[in-house]
Every structure is written in C-alpha cells, then in structure tokens.
C-alpha cells in the first residue's frame, strides 16, 4: 500500500502544472527582459483564447516602447528559425503550454 501511495504522490508531482513564466532563452538586458516578460504575461492573460490578438498586442506594445519592427509568435507548437538583432530576443514559456518568441529585426 505504501508503495502505491508513494507512486501516486510522484505522479501528482510530475503532473503538477507550472504556470509561471519561464524564460527559456534571452539576450536582452535585464530591464528590457522583465518588461517584455511582463508584457507577454499580460497579453497572454488578456487574450487567453486568441493567440493572434495576444501576439498583436505584444508586437504593438513593443514597437511603441522600444522602436519599430518587433515580431512576436505565440503558440503551442511551432518551429522557427529567425534572425534577430542582438540583444533583442526573448524566448519564453508561459502557462505551461504556451511558447512566445519575441524578437526585433528591422
């Protein structure tokens, strides 16, 4: 019995959903990084059901704050190969199933 319960514990542990934002890769400076991360979180929470709008919001806001030509991709599954301006890349996960890639290239 003890074993079974332990197994269950482990199971629940592994199935625990992590929803916090997790920066996977970024070469931004800290200030920009936190701002961008917070923006992504806000956008994804606001448009939880519409990735397109979320991406649009991220892109528009970043354009306003840090100058033009930002690109954002929000989705659950995709592949990408991008060229970005150095110090302007953020690749993060959010909500346990969402990946956001945000970069600048003009």
């Amino acid at each position: 019995m003890a074993e079974v319960t332990e197994d269950k514990k482990v199971d629940t542990d592994s199935k625990r959903v992590h929803t916090y934002p997790l920066i996977r890769h970024s070469d931004m400076n800290d200030e920009m990084k936190t701002e961008a991360m917070e923006l992504c979180v806000t956008a994804c929470e606001k448009f939880a059901s519409n990735n397109e709008n979320a991406a649009k919001m991220i892109k528009d806001t970043m354009d306003k704050k840090f100058g033009a030509s930002w690109h954002a991709v929000v989705g659950e599954g995709y592949g990408f190969e991008i060229t970005h301006e150095v110090k302007n890349l953020l690749y993060m996960f959010f909500g346990g199933n969402m990946a956001i890639i945000l970069w600048k290239c003009s």
């Binding site: 996977r24 890769h25 070469d27 989705g75 659950e76 599954g77 995709y78 592949g79 990408f80 190969e81 991008i82 060229t83 970005h84 301006e85 150095v86 890349l89 690749y91 990946a99 890639i101 970069w103 290239c105």
Partner: peptide, 8 residues
C-alpha cells in the same frame, strides 16, 4: 544580428 531557432 544573430540567428536563433528552436522548436516548440
């Protein structure tokens, strides 16, 4: 510029 690629 730099390139970055990954799969989600």
């Amino acid at each position: 510029r730099a390139s970055f690629s990954s799969n989600v």
